[in-house]
Design a protein around this nucleic acid. Structure first.
Lengths: 242, 242
DNA sequence: ACCCCCCTTTGTGTATACATGGGCAGAGTA
DNA sequence: TACTCTGCCCATGTATACACAAAGGGGGGT
């Protein structure tokens, strides 16, 4: 077997359960029982509890009133609201960056990331994997430019939800061709946000970052409007309850 | 004080540890050891672990890289940023409420809360405890008017931090007299926010809610500018690292 | 026939013993 | 003196046994 498995049982359980929740195999509302999971995974209850507890931190599980854990339900409205929230938070990061000013070194990194993303568009075959990675890095860097640990932390937290990540629907195989066309304009927005920050235009930076998140929202709504066919290919949406 | 010890050891440990962290008795950066805490509390490691895990969910503890927990450090900048963040989130709630429209029943509750707060100002002796409670209720209701579970959840999460709560510095004994004067204008802002929502003025509602949070920020900055004397009385600030 | 009580089942809470692994100190050597 | 290697120690990881509380079902009483 691929001996890659991480050290502790708790970590393996965490990874395994997370995958099953995100994959929709454990639908929202499912009560998770320690004993059952322990037997299933061939480990004792203790590491299972540890894993469940961490999944609750990740907001994938809710604690049931009398103890125990329940898989959190995500409706379509929740996905939309979460993306909206990411837009608001990234907008705040952009505004704070503009208002507070960004050290030159950090600004250089931002421009470098912009250039790297540009270069992807210039190759013949579009390398979605590289774009997705660079896009994630750019967004992480944008958060850091706010120079607010608190804000970074919350953005990271929200972004950890699979459907709310800035690169959420890029890996989905179903509609890449249609998607690539929209990425060029996303990159224009990236550039505009950095420009606004450089010019200390807080309001403009915030507005642009919010609008940028709307692209992800349109993406979700597009995927969901085409029911089964496209939705099958959208792994990030497997978690949806309805 | 009705000594209402809850059922389980884990809950008692949670409460005890939370109090000690918030009270500054366990300063930021302190590593918490399971065995030591277990002995200290006279219980076994298992419930201690459970309590630590929940404190990590509450963002009062960080998980150390190699396992274990460390008390989170809050600098002044973090307090300011957290309050700013609350303003942003409540602003978003207010905007969404305005954009999406609020059911009449909910709007009635909001107006009723406004009236109840008004009535506090009309008594001779200002009842800070009642004001504090009503203020918290009003802010919770404002979040709910957004009709977004995701947003409510995040607001509640941020608001759980002692210094970020809308009623954070109201209970502090030291400067109540000076404080009461500002509360009347806070109530004006409450009214304006609800008015904006009723008129479906999203931008105005958002701006007002943000500005409203700035009052809390000014409060912190005032308390901190008067060093020891006032800060002693501000229990919410005991957690501060510096 | 209905209701109440008890007993069993099931799930989490807790204690404890043992495993494991990383870091540090001390000794031995170049 | 500096460096490294070894072994101990401490903190967390894991398994397991037992405790306890809640819910459900069956049996007996009225």
């Amino acid at each position: 077997m691929p001996e890659e498995k991480t050290a502790t049982h708790a970590q393996r359980a965490l990874i395994s359960l997370r995958k099953r929740i995100l994959g929709g195999e454990l639908p929202g509302g499912t009560r998770l029982f320690e004993v059952a999971l322990a037997e299933e995974l061939g480990i004792s209850r203790t590491p299972v509890r540890a894993a469940l507890s961490r999944l609750a931190e990740e907001a994938l599980l809710d604690r049931a009133p009398g103890g125990g854990f329940v898989v959190r339900s995500f409706a379509v409205a929740d996905v939309v609201d979460t993306i909206e929230l990411r837009g608001v938070l990234e907008g705040t990061a952009a505004r704070l960056a503009a208002e507070r000013g960004v050290p030159k070194a950090m600004m250089d990194v931002a421009h470098d990331l912009l250039r790297q993303i540009d270069s992807i568009f210039q190759r013949e075959a579009f390398d979605m994997e590289s774009y997705s990675a660079l896009n994630a890095t750019f967004h992480r860097h944008l958060a850091e430019m706010s120079q607010s640990d608190v804000l970074c932390r919350e953005i990271e937290r929200i972004t950890a939800l699979p459907f709310a990540s800035p690169s959420a629907f890029l890996d989905d195989q179903s509609h890449q061709a249609a998607l690539v066309r929209t990425l060029a304009s996303a990159q224009d927005q990236h550039r505009a946000i950095i420009d606004a920050i450089a010019n200390r235009e807080g309001f403009r930076a915030e507005s642009l970052a919010r609008e940028h998140a709307r692209a992800a929202r349109r993406n979700v709504e597009f995927l969901l409007s085409h029911e089964a066919a496209l939705r099958e290919g959208a792994a990030s949406l497997a978690i949806l309850s309805v």
